[in-house]
Amino acid sequence: AAIPAPLKAIQHHLRTAQELEKRDPVVAYYCKLYAVQTGMKLDSKSPECRKFLMKLMDQLESMKKELSDNESVSQELVGHAHIENYALKMFLYADNEDRSGRFHKNMIKSFYTASLLIDVLTVFGELSEENIQHRKYARWKATYIHNCLKNGETPQ
């Protein structure tokens, strides 16, 4: 379903959830949880947004049932470690490509996804200083390399 305009800020997290639903349903679950929680803060009053958030909540409830045997979903502390590891894996892959001078769309996406997953970590509480720095760096790198490739320049 189309995302209502007031909830546009969660569209990338929802797209990540969709993309990872088969590969890693736990990450997809927490991306959606982040989207609902953030969406409720953005707008849970207009009928359009309420309807959208209710549907997302339906999906989350059924995902939680399906994943009930998975400790990463039944215990949020384990879930936190799972998301943090996944974000770090994405970050390290992109960083390794960057340091090896291999600039491509996939590494840009990995940097950006790592930054989105660090956003998702906020559902568990305040971010560590290290995660704040990683998020800032990953988002900046993704934008910088994207612009370089678009303009036919070699990233430094």
Binding site: Q37, M40, S44, K45, R50, L53, M54, M57, E61
Partner: peptide, 27 residues
């Protein structure tokens, strides 16, 4: 009808908050 509408809206908002809390085992 305006107040009925806003009552419905806040009931639904509560429903969302309650479902979120249940989902996260916070109730």
């Amino acid at each position: 009808t305006g107040s009925v509408g806003s009552s419905v809206a806040s009931a639904e908002q509560d429903e969302l908050s309650q479902r979120l809390a249940r989902l996260r085992d916070q109730v």
